[in-house]
Amino acid sequence: TNHCIGLLVALYALCLWIIPAVVQYSGCLALLWHDVIVEKSLDTVTRTTRPQRLLKAVQDRAIRGNPKSVISVIDHYCRNQEWAMNVGDEKGFILDSVVSELNPQTVLELGTYCGYSAVRIGRLLHSGARLLTLEFNPDYAAVAREVISWAGLENTVQLVEGASGDWIPRLREHFGIHTFDFIFLDHWKEGYLADIKLLEECRLLRKGTVLLADNVVCPGAPDYLEYVRKSPLYDSRYFKSHLEYTKAEDGLEKSVYLG
């Protein structure tokens, strides 16, 4: 019996403290541990999904109508209870500074997930500005709508459900937006390059449009980075940071469209 108890204590310590501490410094290991092993285990045990658990934390702890409170609760939850692949607090400050400096009127986000970055961007937009955020996964979209609403930003942020490749050619006709001032890429990393080329093709970029791409190191978007860094159409700069809620290197690539 003592042997079994000792084993359980050791497993508990391993899962709760030792492995999370070790994977902090490796992006690949962090994604494997948090996004595969832990998430699937908690989904099975709790019969809920990570987005649903994150939404419950927001509803339990965040002040309704207060975007800053929603962001703080999500950051605290992801640092102390369960990791999630939002842009996170550290890279979030870089995102904030780019949005504040640009003061955009029209914003496009590719990849809403649970609505964290949509709330982060939406709270900084001035009256009359619009943020369209595209999310392919209907379960993520359902949670994101609730999170955006809880933050009181449903009149600023419009969530569009579907694939970016399907929606980008229809954005001008459907929403009456001719070009975007700011575009935040945070969906499938393999889709970054195809979508930026589609945005060019559909003439949704203007001279001075700023594109900010997340997770360009981890999981990584090497083809996208090569394109924006070598193309004469862009002036591109890398902002070194860390994978959300870890100490593993990651960063954001800011690219200004030169037309």
Rank of each mutant, 00 (worst) to 15 (best):
G152M: 09
R145V: 10
L225P: 00
V143S: 08
K40Y: 12
Y113M: 07
L205H: 08
F182P: 01
I63E: 14
M85T: 06
L124E: 11
W167F: 07
E173P: 00
N2H: 11
I63N: 04
G191V: 01
L95A: 01
L193H: 14
T133R: 04
I71S: 01
V36N: 12
V45Y: 11
D89I: 07
I168L: 14
V36C: 10
V119W: 05
I71G: 00
R172G: 07
L185V: 02
G122N: 11
V210I: 15
A221C: 11
E161L: 14
R145L: 12
P138D: 12
R172Y: 03
K56E: 14
S255I: 07
G220Q: 08
V210W: 00
K230I: 00
I183F: 00
A13T: 13
V58I: 12
L205F: 07
V87F: 02
Y12D: 12
N155M: 07
P232N: 08
Y245F: 15
A57H: 05
C28K: 13
D186G: 13
V143F: 10
L198C: 10
I71Q: 04
I19S: 05
V160H: 05
W188V: 04
R206Q: 15
F93R: 14
Y192A: 04
S100E: 15
I71K: 02
L134R: 06
K68Q: 14
D43I: 06
H34S: 10
L159E: 13
K254F: 01
Q105I: 05
P20A: 11
A129M: 09
V23W: 06
T112Q: 05
I148P: 09
L124P: 03
D250G: 04
E244F: 03
L205Q: 06
W167E: 09
Y140C: 14
N137Y: 08
A21Y: 12
T48C: 06
G111W: 04
L8T: 12
L11Y: 11
A62T: 02
T44R: 14
V157R: 10
L171H: 09
E82G: 02
H187W: 02
E200L: 12
T44H: 13
A144G: 08
C4V: 13
K189M: 05
F175Y: 15
I196R: 03
L153D: 08
L212F: 03
L132R: 06
L193F: 12
N86C: 13
T209A: 01
R145P: 00
F239A: 04
L95T: 00
L198Y: 06
L185H: 02
L32T: 06
G115W: 10
K247E: 12
D166N: 13
V38K: 11
G162W: 12
L193T: 05
L193N: 08
A62Q: 02
T48H: 08
F182A: 01
K68I: 06
I177D: 07
R237T: 12
I94C: 04
A151I: 10
E109R: 04
Q59T: 15
Y238P: 00
L42V: 15
Y140N: 15
A142V: 05
N86F: 05
L205E: 07
R120M: 13
L185F: 15
D186K: 02
T179K: 04
A21D: 13
Y245K: 10
K91Y: 02
V147F: 09
P67M: 06
H174F: 01
L132K: 07
V98E: 01
Y227D: 07
L108K: 03
G152Q: 09
Y12K: 05
D89M: 05
F180E: 01
T106L: 00
E253D: 12
A194Y: 05
G92K: 02
